[in-house]
Simulated scan of single mutants.
Amino acid sequence: MKNRIRVLRAEHEMTQEQLAELVGVTRNTIISMEKDKYSPSLKLGYRIAHVFNVGIDDVFTYEEDKDGPSSDEG
């Protein structure tokens, strides 16, 4: 999953620490999300979108992993 958290923070002149405080996580969680090393829960995703006053689709974009399950499985 890709995200625009870093871009949105810059647009709102917000630090990682400030965002972390507003959504109830650690700064390290924000860092991990910005580096695409952590995919947040749906609840956290919505909290982040709410802080920036945008829809969740404006923050996160799902990209299927090349090594992940194919869309015809299931």
Rank of each mutant, 00 (worst) to 15 (best):
Y62D: 03
E63H: 05
R27I: 09
V7H: 11
V23C: 02
G45F: 00
L44H: 06
T26Q: 13
Y62W: 02
T29E: 11
E13M: 14
I30K: 05
D65F: 14
K66D: 15
E63I: 14
L8F: 00
K35F: 13
G55C: 06
L42Q: 10
D57W: 05
A10V: 07
M1N: 10
K66L: 13
G74W: 15
L19A: 05
L19T: 03
Y46G: 07
N28G: 08
D36M: 07
T15S: 05
H50F: 05
D72H: 12
H50M: 02
E64Q: 14
D72C: 14
I48G: 06
L19C: 01
H50T: 03
E63K: 06
V25H: 10
V7S: 02
D67R: 13
V7F: 00
N53L: 00
G55R: 00
D65S: 15
K35S: 12
I56Y: 09
D36L: 10
R47M: 10
G68C: 11
E73T: 08
D67G: 10
E64M: 14
P40Q: 11
G68H: 13
D65H: 13
A10T: 13
F52W: 00
N53T: 00
V7P: 08
Y46W: 03
T29N: 08
R6S: 11
S41F: 12
L22H: 03
E13R: 11
Y62A: 14
D67H: 08
L22R: 08
R9E: 03
P40E: 07
D72Y: 15
M14T: 07
T15E: 02
R4T: 03
D65E: 10
H12Y: 10
E34C: 09
E13S: 15
S32Y: 12
V7A: 08
V54D: 04
Q18C: 05
E11K: 12
M14D: 01
